[in-house]
Amino acid sequence: MRKSIILIASILSVFFLIRTNSKGKQITNHLKGIVKNTISKPSYINESGDSISTRVRVPEGFKRVTYPQGSFEEYLRNYKLKKYGTPIINFDGSEYFAQHWHDAILEIPVPKNGLQQCADALMRIRAEYLWNKNLQHKIGFKFTSGHYCSWKQYAEGYRPKINGSKVKFLKTTNANYSKSNFYNYLNLIFTYAGTASLHAELPKVKIKDLKIGDMLIQPGFPGHIEIIADEIMNDKGEKMYLLVQGNTPAQNVCLLKNFEDIDISPWYRFAENEPVYTPSYYFDKPVFIRFK
């Protein structure tokens, strides 16, 4: 017992020293989650589950919202996971300092170049879905400058010539439609796009209209963004969601616990004009956006 008390006290001490929200205020609600996580396991986690839908159980009275087979929503819901307990690893091979935030690690490689940060990881998920569905012509994102850069354009050999906020696309190389060149394209997107460009480019979504694939965003440099990876509903029409994030520094993409409402963790509820607390970020005025 004494060891448990010392362990909890140590965790809380470290947490107070290193974790603050975006305004410099300590997110004290996380302490509840850390303490409970130290003394008990979440009740909605199936440790043997190898996908989001099989790792996280549905609370009594709720059912998963149905989406068409092959849809982006089903793609996210059934995303493959690493073995339960896998730690979050940074792009340089080091372990991230906070290993108590997640209930799952998604099977998304983390490039060693450090470019695949929070928004980048979600753009990669979207782009890979379109690639796998043979919808490569729909792959494209705007730079922070507002200039649209499509995979089709890049594959044809066009490259951006950037001068401050001015961008021109010039054909400078032979066409290359290979998968390896696709990842070269994504590295370019990771360099010149992010939360600010996604916030400016994509349509906003009201809380009542949320679905899998919508993203909770705080634009900025770096800002932060998280994506809804599952959705459930009860007979009253009440909904709950799962959140997934990449992060800065570039690291494994993970499914987040809910320290604000630990009784339903990792599920989240959202309400209009209500702030959203997640383990690594505090969204004071939550805004949701949707891929086109």
Results as ranks from 00 to 15, higher is better:
155 A>V: 02
85 G>T: 09
108 I>N: 12
82 K>E: 14
101 W>K: 14
109 P>Q: 01
112 K>W: 08
115 L>P: 14
122 L>E: 04
142 K>D: 11
139 I>Q: 01
103 D>W: 14
114 G>I: 06
139 I>Y: 00
153 Q>T: 12
105 I>Y: 08
105 I>E: 09
110 V>T: 12
104 A>Q: 05
130 L>F: 00
128 E>F: 01
85 G>P: 13
153 Q>M: 07
135 L>K: 12
96 Y>Q: 12
105 I>G: 12
81 L>A: 10
137 H>Q: 10
93 G>K: 05
125 I>N: 11
82 K>Y: 04
108 I>A: 11
136 Q>H: 08
93 G>M: 12
97 F>N: 12
119 A>M: 09
89 I>K: 12
152 K>R: 04
102 H>N: 14
154 Y>A: 03
125 I>P: 01
81 L>T: 10
122 L>N: 05
126 R>M: 00
119 A>Q: 11
91 F>N: 11
121 A>H: 03
98 A>M: 15
153 Q>F: 01
81 L>G: 11
98 A>T: 15
82 K>G: 03
145 S>A: 08
90 N>E: 14
148 Y>A: 02
108 I>D: 07
97 F>D: 10
153 Q>A: 04
137 H>C: 03
82 K>D: 13
84 Y>A: 13
137 H>S: 13
143 F>G: 01
83 K>I: 13
145 S>I: 03
142 K>I: 01
141 F>W: 04
94 S>K: 09
134 N>D: 08
91 F>R: 06
127 A>W: 00
104 A>S: 15
84 Y>P: 07
106 L>N: 06
142 K>H: 14
127 A>C: 10
123 M>Q: 04
94 S>T: 11
118 C>S: 15
127 A>Y: 00
146 G>E: 09
136 Q>P: 03
83 K>S: 14
99 Q>L: 11
155 A>I: 03
148 Y>P: 08
140 G>D: 05
153 Q>G: 07
120 D>T: 02
130 L>A: 07
84 Y>K: 09
102 H>R: 06
